[in-house]
Nucleic acid binder design. Structure first.
Length: 565
RNA sequence: GGUGGCGUAGCUCAGUUGGUUAGAGCGUGGGAUUCAUAACCCCAAGGUCGGUGGUUCAAUUCCACCCGCCACCA
C-alpha cells in the first residue's frame, strides 16, 4: 500500500467553470484518485478555489458586493457543481481561508530569510479617480506603434505588440474610464528567481514521472533564464504582506500577487482538511514529518505547467524547508466548442451547472474522459457526445447489464444461479479478461485516460460477445445447468464491469452494484476473484435503465440553447 | 514576431526506435440473432499517413522549407 497526494489545478473563483476546465484537471484527478483508492492505497485528494486577484475584486465591485461575499457565493456554487459531478475531493478549500494566508506569509518570510526577496521601486499607472494603482490589463490607451486607440496595457490587440502600460499614449482607466491618471513610484517585493536557476535545473534533471512536454516547457524557461519577478500587487483583496509576523511597512495597500499565493493553496487546503477532519497535514507535505514516502501527483492544463514545474518549486525549494515536491504530473490541452474556444459572451459552450441540468454527471464524465484532450485540443460537439453516450454507455454497458439481469430475474428466479461448472468458453473468457484488466490497470497507472476508457469499453464489448456465444436463452431449453452457469458468469461480469466503470462513472457503477446486492466501495478486481464477485444464491434486483439514449431532438434543443452545430 | 505542439480513413483518435497487406471506435453497407434500452454479435467497403524537396536500397516514420490549426512568451 502506497500513499498518493493528488491535487487538481485550482479553479479560479470568477464564475462557474466550463467543461474544458473540468476535463483538464478536476475530472482526471478524480478518476485517478478513485483508481488509487480502489487499489487499496491511501489517497488524499485536494482542491480549492483560487480566490484572490484583480478579476475577483472587479467582479465583486460590478455586483456591488464585497470580494469576500462574492467569493463566498461562487465558492459555494463551484463546490456544489463539483459534487454534482461526483468529484471525490477529500477537501475542497479556499485560498482566501486563514491557513493559506498564514502559509503564504510564512513562505515569503522564509524566502526573505534566505535573501531571495528584495524590495524594488517601480513606476506604475495610478488612477486618481479610482484612487488605486491599475494592473496592466486595466490601463487602456493609444498604441505607440500602430496608434490603435483601445490598446491594453499589456498588449495591443490591433498590432499584437507587447506593451508596458507606461508606453500608452493618452492612458485611461478601464475601471472608471477616467483619464485622470499619473505615474507614481511604488515599492514591490521581488522574488529573486535568478538566484534559484541552478537549483531548479538540478531538481528538474532529477524529476521522473513527468511527460516530455512538461520537461521541455520547464527547460525552455530555464534556458531562457529565470528572471526576478514582483510577487506583490496594489490590491486590497488578497494575502497581506508581513515582515516578522507584523504588517510590513509601506505595504498597507498591497497584497501578494495571486500567482504567488495560489499554489500555496494546495498546502493551505490540506491544512483546512486537517483542521476540519482531524487529519495530520504535515504527514502529507513535510518530508521530515512523514511525507517522504508520498507520491505527489498534480493535474493541470498545459498553460499551468511552467508555474508548477518552475515558479512554485522556486517558492518551496527557496524556503529551504523540507516541503514535498511534485513527483508525477499530468497536463491537458483544452476541450473546444466545435473547434473554437468556449465563450460565455457569445453563448457558446456548456458550463458545469448547466450540464447537470441536462444530464447526470456520469454522462459528461464518460464523454470527457473517453475523449480527453491529452495529445491536443479536443473538440466537443453534440453529435459526438450523443454517439459516444449512446454507443458506449447505453448500448454496450447499460444494455448488457439490463439484458443479463432481466434474464436472471425472469428465468432464474431473481437469484444468482448456483449450478454448473465453467467450460471452455468461460476459461477462454477468463484468460482474456485477465489480460484486458492488466492493460486497463496499466493505462490508469500511466494516467492515459483515453486509452484506459477505450480499453474499459472494449472489456464491456467482450462481455456482450461472450453472452452472444454462450446464448443462455438457447441453453435454457436444452441444458438448464449450462444456462445457470452462463447467467452466473454474466452476473459476475456485471460486477466486474461496475468495478472497472467506477473510476469513470461512479454513480452508475454503484447502481449496478446495488442491483447485485454488493456493499461498500468496489476494490480493483484481481484475477483470482474474477468469477467470484457475486455470491451464488444471492438475490438480485434489476436496476432502472442505467443510461437513457440521447435523441436527435435533444441535440436540436441543446444546440438551440447553447449554440454550436 | 519567438518557442513548442499538432495536421493519419466521412468523424474522433492510436501507431510507425524507417522495411512485406497503416490500426481502433463511431458512421456506412451486408449477414446472423431474438435474452435486452430496434440493443448485442460477425463480416465488408473506405486512407497517395497536410504540401514540396532532400538523405536512404527503402520514409507516413529522419532532415529542410512551406501551408493550416493550437498553446505559451513571467
Amino acid at each position: 500500500m502506497a500513499r498518493y497526494l493528488i491535487t487538481s489545478a485550482l479553479p479560479y473563483i470568477n464564475g462557474v467553470k466550463h467543461l474544458g476546465n473540468l476535463a483538464g484537471s478536476m475530472l482526471p484527478a478524480d478518476v485517478h484518485a478513485r483508481f488509487r483508492r480502489m487499489q487499496g492505497h491511501e489517497v488524499l485528494f485536494i482542491c480549492a478555489t483560487d480566490e484572490h486577484g484583480t478579476p475577483a475584486e472587479l467582479a465583486a465591485a460590478e455586483l456591488g458586493v464585497s470580494p469576500r461575499a462574492y467569493c463566498d457565493q461562487f465558492h459555494d456554487i463551484q463546490r456544489k457543481a463539483g459534487e454534482g459531478f461526483g468529484l471525490s475531493f477529500d477537501w475542497f478549500g479556499r485560498t482566501s481561508n486563514p491557513p493559506n494566508h498564514r502559509l503564504t506569509q510564512h513562505l515569503a518570510e522564509a524566502l526573505e530569510g534566505n535573501r531571495l526577496l528584495e524590495e524594488r521601486t517601480t513606476r506604475q499607472v495610478y488612477s486618481n479617480a479610482d484612487k488605486r494603482f491599475l494592473p496592466d490589463r486595466y490601463v487602456e490607451g493609444t498604441c505607440p506603434f500602430c496608434f490603435y486607440e483601445n490598446a491594453r496595457g499589456d498588449q495591443c490587440d490591433n498590432c499584437g505588440a507587447l506593451l508596458d502600460p507606461v508606453q500608452l499614449k493618452n492612458p485611461r482607466s478601464k475601471i472608471s474610464g477616467s483619464s485622470d491618471v499619473e505615474l507614481r513610484d511604488t515599492a514591490h517585493l521581488f522574488l529573486l528567481q535568478s538566484k534559484m536557476q541552478e537549483q531548479i535545473r538540478a531538481w528538474v534533471d532529477r524529476a521522473e514521472g513527468w511527460p516530455s512536454l512538461a520537461r521541455s516547457i520547464a527547460y525552455k524557461w530555464l534556458d531562457e533564464g529565470l528572471i526576478d519577478r514582483s510577487i506583490t500587487r496594489d490590491l486590497a483583496w488578497g494575502v497581506k504582506v508581513t515582515k516578522d509576523g507584523a504588517p510590513r511597512q509601506g505595504f498597507d495597500d498591497k497584497v501578494f500577487y495571486v500567482w504567488f499565493d495560489a499554489p500555496i493553496g494546495y498546502i493551505g487546503a490540506t491544512v483546512e482538511w486537517a483542521e476540519g477532519k482531524g487529519g495530520n497535514w504535515e504527514r502529507w507535505w513535510r518530508t521530515d514529518k512523514g511525507a517522504a514516502d508520498v507520491t505527489y501527483v498534480q493535474f493541470m492544463g498545459k498553460d499551468n505547467v511552467a508555474f508548477h514545474t518552475v515558479s512554485f518549486p522556486v517558492t518551496i525549494i527557496g524556503s529551504g524547508e523540507p516541503w514535498k515536491l511534485v513527483d508525477r504530473l499530468k497536463a491537458f490541452n483544452w476541450v473546444t466548442w466545435y473547434g473554437d474556444k468556449f465563450s460565455t459572451s457569445q453563448r457558446r459552450g456548456v458550463f458545469m451547472d448547466q450540464a447537470l441540468e441536462l444530464l447526470p454527471g456520469d454522462y459528461w464524465r464518460w464523454y470527457l474522459m473517453a475523449n480527453a484532450p491529452e495529445s491536443s485540443d479536443a473538440a466537443f460537439t453534440w453529435e459526438q457526445f450523443k454517439d459516444t453516450i449512446n454507443a458506449d454507455l447505453a448500448n454496450v454497458l447499460g444494455n448488457f447489464v439490463n439484458r443479463i439481469m432481466k434474464f436472471a430475474e425472469t428465468k432464474m428466479g431473481g437469484v444468482v444461479p448456483m449450478e454448473g461448472e465453467p467450460g471452455p468458453l468461460e476459461n477462454e473468457l477468463y484468460e482474456d479478461l485477465e489480460e484486458r484488466l492488466a492493460r486497463i490497470s496499466d493505462f490508469h497507472d500511466q494516467m492515459e485516460f483515453r486509452k484506459a476508457a477505450a480499453e474499459t469499453r472494449s472489456l464491456w464489448v467482450r462481455g456482450n460477445e461472450y453472452l452472444q456465444l454462450a446464448a443462455p436463452w438457447t441453453a435454457l431449453k436444452t441444458d438448464p445447468v449450462r444456462a445457470a452457469m452462463v447467467v452466473r458468469t454474466g452476473l459476475n461480469l456485471c460486477a466486474l464491469f461496475a468495478a472497472t466503470a467506477f473510476p469513470f462513472i461512479p454513480e452508475s457503477a454503484q447502481a449496478i452494484r446495488d442491483g447485485l446486492g454488493l456493499k461498500g466501495d468496489p476494490a480493483w478486481p484481481l484475477g483470482a476473484k474474477l468469477f467470484e464477485l457475486v455470491s451464488p444464491g444471492a438475490p438480485i434486483a434489476v436496476p432502472p435503465v442505467l443510461f437513457r439514449k440521447i435523441e436527435d431532438a435533444d441535440v436540436a434543443a441543446w444546440s438551440e440553447r447553447f449554440g454550436g452545430g
